[in-house]
């Protein structure tokens, strides 16, 4: 199998549903190894992109190769080299976890004995041994997801595609899935992961692609994105609600930019070009006016802020309330 060049390479993918452009010239290059996160709001085209890359959907235009095989010309080769974990736990609810894995292993054309051995391996690896012979219908959400992951890894595929793998999971189950994904990436699997949780992207992804309206609008590591967009911010938390309006005015004048306001938390947040100068100016302005803030801090923007800025539709910046 050719391993030179990117593991996933898509160019100009287009897909229309009626008037809706689900993919509008999407380009995507994912190098081998590591976790690449596809981040974007609902309806941005993440799932459509995943369905094209996993041979489930034919694009109207464009081309894509996954693990060296063309998704349109050699879908069978792509299928032999990928694992997909979709949005729903796509497992048989009536059968046991073990029966599910043996079934999928048989459909990967493993002989019966090897299919059984592989199922046992995977059950062990995903901590499902105790529940192995119970019907999947009795599993918790987290167990189902882990089984689903295991079913995507029958042949240790070089590429694993995860479409919103932790949607609807409780925090504990989410952490378990994250651990599993980290382990796979560490072992050399290239993981493409879509998510709408910024925390998940920040925690798991080595590189990010922000998708909006069917195209990739930003790419880079989480740190690069944070640096490229917005730079540092000064946060001020007030102690009295009555001070809020004055503080917004004072801080705005001091740094020359309108702060974002979170009235419930009595917090202002403002992007600043020079962290030290700006911090001094803010403190001086508040002090001169006799306002005693509860907390003042300089920080990097969060991924949430970067993301909201990138995917902002028509709301002007100043109207947006940022909660960090």
């Amino acid at each position: 199998m050719p391993v030179n060049g990117p593991t996933i390479d898509a160019e100009g993918l287009r897909k229309r549903y009626g008037d809706m452009r689900a993919l509008d010239g999407l380009d995507l290059t994912v190098p081998a190894g590591g976790v690449c996160g596809l981040l974007g709001p609902n309806g941005a085209g993440k799932t459509t992109a995943v369905r094209v890359l996993t041979t489930l959907l034919r694009p109207d235009a464009g081309r894509a190769t996954v693990a060296g095989a063309d998704v349109l010309r050699h879908p069978d080769r792509v299928r032999a080299r990928i694992g997909l974990v979709g949005q729903h736990a796509a497992v048989d609810e009536v059968l046991s976890g073990r029966q599910n894995l043996v079934l999928f292993a048989r459909l990967h054309h493993l002989p019966v004995s090897r299919a059984r051995a592989r199922a046992a391996d995977l059950l062990d690896r995903f901590d499902l041994v105790d529940a192995a012979d119970r019907p999947v219908g009795t599993y918790s959400g987290g167990m189902r997801r882990r089984l689903d992951l295991a079913a995507g890894l029958i042949l240790d595929p070089p590429v694993l595609v995860l479409d919103e793998p932790t949607t609807g999971l409780d925090p504990r189950a989410r952490a378990q899935v994250w651990d599993a994904v980290r382990g796979l990436a560490a072992a050399g699997t290239t993981v493409l992961l879509t998510t709408q949780y910024l925390e998940e992207a920040d925690q798991l992804a080595d590189t990010l692609r922000v998708v909006d309206r069917g195209r990739v609008i930003a790419a880079g590591t989480p740190d690069q994105l944070k640096t490229a967009l917005g730079g540092d911010r000064v946060d001020v938390v007030l102690s009295r609600p009555d001070d809020l309006d004055r503080a917004v005015r004072l801080v705005g004048v001091a740094v020359g930019a309108a702060p974002d306001v979170d009235p419930a938390a009595l917090r202002l947040s403002v992007p600043v070009p020079q962290r030290v100068t700006a911090l001094a100016a803010v403190l001086r302005a508040l002090d001169d006016a006799g306002l005693a803030p509860a907390d003042v801090a300089v920080r990097r923007p969060t991924l949430d802020e970067v993301y909201l800025r990138l995917t902002a539709r028509d709301a002007p910046d100043t109207d947006r309330t940022v909660t960090a």
Binding site: L56, G86, A90
Partner: peptide, 17 residues
């Protein structure tokens, strides 16, 4: 509805099966 059909379609199995 449960996505099992989609999983089958991403496997290297015979689609007719």
């Amino acid at each position: 509805a449960r996505g099992v059909t989609d999983r089958f379609r991403t496997l290297p199995m015979a689609p007719s099966a």
